[in-house]
């Protein structure tokens, strides 16, 4: 006997039994238990031979079928009180009928599902109350992201570094230079010294040197007009003690 059954199609033992009933046009109220039990067990055999995991429910149903079959083989108890003896198949029939009802209901749901699937809701995206605008980016291009990144960087506490350079220029050094520039002259323009100065520190130190030389009465400074040229005048004294002072 060949079996042409699709495996995995059956939802459970009841489904399998309903398949046999439908295929063989069996009257559900008068199930030939011997035949259907043989069919059922053969199917389980096929599942076993295919190394399929047989769910416990199938085994339970097999036991039920065999039990019914056994009861039907036994001579019926003569029950005098009841008019009819109960058919051992009654419980199984009730189970099959109930399951069949819901299987049909499931098919109706399937057709409703297929029907409704053709309608598509006009979908609105509701703004939720806990909407966080920072979590959503709309119409953003690469430039916006760059701009945001810059904004973020600007807001960040910036580590500030101060580089402290040792001032290599000294007052005595600048004094020496000034003295050397005078050479044999008595008067000299400040701009002549300034021309040689390379940075702010040198300017400051040179000024300090000039002030120091004034203080030591080595030179004097004169200016004819406001913001005008500064003139440095050398005094005739010996500068030896000035150097010692600095």
């Amino acid at each position: 006997m060949s079996y042409n059954v699709k495996l995995n199609v059956f939802e459970g033992p009841l489904d399998l039994l309903l398949f046999f009933i439908k295929r063989d046009e069996i009257n559900i109220y008068d199930i030939p238990i011997a035949d259907i039990t043989r069919e059922y067990l053969t199917y389980i055999g096929i599942m076993e031979s295919l190394n399929l995991h047989i769910a416990g429910e199938f085994i339970v149903m097999a036991a039920m079928l065999i039990s019914i079959k056994a009861q039907m083989l036994l001579p019926r108890q003569v029950n005098q009180e009841a008019e009819e003896t109960e058919d051992p198949r009654t419980e199984l029939v009730a189970m099959l009928l109930e399951y069949k009802q819901f299987k049909e209901a499931a098919m109706r749901l399937r057709s409703l599902e297929e029907y409704q699937a053709r309608y598509h809701a006009v979908q609105a995206h509701n703004p939720t109350t806990d909407f966080d605008p920072d979590l959503f980016l709309t119409d953003v291009n690469l430039l916006d992201i760059g701009r945001f990144f810059k904004k973020l960087l600007d807001k960040m506490p910036r580590p500030t570094y101060y580089q402290i350079e040792t001032i290599k220029t000294t007052i005595s050094q600048q004094s020496q230079i000034i003295r050397a520039l005078f050479e044999n002259r008595h008067r000299m323009r400040f701009s002549e010294i300034a021309r040689r100065l390379k940075n702010r520190i040198e300017v400051v130190v040179t000024f300090l040197a000039i002030l120091e030389m004034i203080r030591a009465a080595e030179i004097s400074v004169s200016q004819k007009t406001v913001f005008g040229e500064l003139w440095l005048t050398r005094k005739v004294q010996e500068p030896a003690h000035v150097i010692a002072n600095s």
């Binding site: 429910e57 399951y99 819901f102």
Partner: peptide, 24 residues
């Protein structure tokens, strides 16, 4: 769909009710 049909027509139901009808 089978389970859903049982729930829809018999609600409220327990899981045991569903298992009993489906046999699984």
């Amino acid at each position: 769909l089978e389970s859903l049909a049982i729930i829809a027509y018999k609600q409220p139901v327990t899981r045991i009710d569903i298992d009993a009808i489906r046999g699984v």
